[in-house]
Write a protein that binds this DNA or RNA. Structure first.
Length: 467
RNA sequence: GCUCCCUUCGUCUAGCGGUCAAGGACGUUGCCCUCUCACGGCGAAAACACGAGUUCGAGUCUCGUAGGGAGCACCA
């Protein structure tokens, strides 16, 4: 049998990092077993589902490379099939119509609650022959016995059937509810392994009952723990739960996000770095932890730096270009992207940092960083900068070696350390005290821009001298 | 309230009864390297929630306590 997994988000909120991890685990499990991975959009809650949320799911998975072998399937398009199954269940007597007033059900719940019991429906209509087609349809949950889930992560979990009530599988308007659609879909799509958040663990016995009623075998289950924010609380918008695409916009690499997520709640000895191929080869539900994990932004950043450093320059060009353009930069006004990436990727944490720290290559700055200018653009360095200007002006070949030599020789002639000259130079041409190594900085900037800015810096110092 | 799940350094984790006076990684921190930021190199601090059992021996098994989490919808 082909191992088949699925990711089944409901588009009621933007897909966040927790959802992506669930998708990743399912995807990895399928890939590891040479199986199939299916994307299914559970949009039966029409009131809360949005197209925007669907788009984030599609775009997010595409961005991360979590490609699916079938789908996306939309549950709203499968209404006919659900009706068919409901009719079948009705026919077989596994379900019944119930026209209990909401108020009555509410009352029963409250009474149970105040009695210290679990709130549940009392099965009032179970033996009545309600024919009202505007009634909801409830499932006849077994009253006795136990339902045992042999969960791949949680181990054996035992539920007493008497704890469960007769759940509604179809609303008064005839539309199916979650537990029914999940079972029908998992059955029809021949899902062999369900990997999902452990918030669904409590739903599982109900779903198993429905599988049984349908004469189908339930899949294997693996309920993975949820992930928490750095404070150990439920993920909220502030924690990036606003959607996976936020990570792209913040300059994270898919490889880093995936590597970070795969190690969140799963481990393989002491290994930290996993390429996609590595994780596919190593992934197994055996390595999944049972406890919830908090996300740690610093570690994600560390991984991002790792993948940035090791990325092929050309793969970063497009995403960096997007980010630079977001900053309003005209790419024609500065260095070639590949050259830029080659020097910046070793010293930035994200592509966004890279973009922000590269602005000066493209746009002239209006003001200097105040502190840097005050510290480095001082009269003492004036003659050295003037001498350097002359040396740089004479360079025929604008390359790292020549630039470096010009700076070092000028410093040597004036008997000052290279650093004493390099920093003022850096401030003059970049406006700040931080940039790539000085020779790279000047080379990428180009001779013309360098000299123009250096000239401006010298003029500023001269102005200081005279005042 | 009831049912289910969880509990090793700040965080992610290794650990599957003795090799653990608990290992790795991020972060923090000391030193080195250095034209700035960063990288890199060498170090350091830092944890088995608590209490009973079982056992010659428990981070590892059992039970309880405490603390977290999830579910109990005509939401998914």
């Amino acid at each position: 049998m082909t191992i088949t997994t699925r990711f089944a988000p409901s588009p009621t909120g933007l897909l966040h990092i927790g959802g992506i991890r669930t998708a990743l685990f399912s995807w990895l499990f399928a890939r590891h077993h040479n199986g199939k991975f299916i994307l299914r959009i559970e949009d039966t809650d029409r009131a809360r589902s949005t197209d925007a949320a669907v788009q984030v799911i599609l775009d997010g998975m595409a961005w991360l490379g979590l490609e699916y072998d079938a789908g996306p399937f939309y549950q709203t398009e499968r209404a006919e099939r659900y009706n068919e199954v409901i009719a079948q269940l009705l026919e077989a007597g596994h379900v019944y119509r119930c026209n209990c007033a909401k108020e009555r059900v509410e009352q029963i719940r409250n009474a149970a609650l105040s009695r210290g019991d679990k709130p549940r429906y009392d099965g009032h209509c179970r033996s009545l022959k309600v024919t009202d087609t505007n009634a909801v349809i409830r499932f006849k949950t077994p009253v006795h016995g136990q339902t045992i889930i042999d969960d791949q992560v949680q181990g054996k979990v035992i539920f007493e059937n008497s704890e469960l009530d007769d759940l509604i599988i179809a609303r008064a308007d005839g539309s199916p509810t979650y537990n029914l659609t999940v079972v029908v879909d998992d059955m029809d799509m021949a899902i062999t392994d369900v990997i999902r958040g452990d918030d669904h663990l409590n739903n599982t016995p109900r779903q198993i009952h429905i599988f049984n009623a349908l004469g189908a075998n339930p899949p294997n289950y693996a309920h993975i723990p949820m992930i928490l924010n750095p404070e150990g609380k439920k993920l909220s918008k502030r924690d990036g739960a606003s959607g996976v695409l936020a990570y792209r916009d913040q300059g994270y690499l898919p490889a880093a996000v995936l590597n970070y997520l795969v190690r969140l709640g799963w481990s393989y000895g002491d290994q930290e770095i996993f390429s996609i191929a590595d994780m596919i080869a190593a992934f197994d539900t055996k390595g999944i932890n049972k406890s919830a994990a908090s996300i740690n932004p610093e570690k994600l950043l560390w991984l991002n730096r790792h993948y940035l450093k090791n990325a092929e320059n050309k793969t970063l060009a497009k995403p960096l270009a997007d980010l630079l353009q977001n900053l309003g930069i005209n790419l024609n006004n500065g260095p070639d992207l590949i050259d830029l990436i080659d020097v910046q990727k070793h010293r930035t944490e994200t592509l966004r940092d890279m973009a922000e720290q590269s602005v000066f290559f493209y746009n002239d700055f209006e003001t200097y960083d105040e502190h840097a200018a005050k510290k480095h653009l001082r009269p003492v360095i004036l003659t050295a900068l003037q001498a350097l200007q002359g040396a740089l002006q004479q360079l025929q070949d604008w390359n790292n070696n020549n630039i470096k030599r010009a700076i070092e020789e000028t410093a040597a002639q004036l008997e000052i350390k290279t650093g004493r000259l390099a920093q003022p130079l850096r401030v003059a041409v970049t406006g700040t005290s931080v940039s790539p190594s000085i020779d790279d900085t000047l080379r990428l900037l180009g001779q013309e821009k360098t000299l123009r800015r250096l000239h401006k810096g010298i003029a500023l110092i001269e102005l200081r001298c005279s005042s």
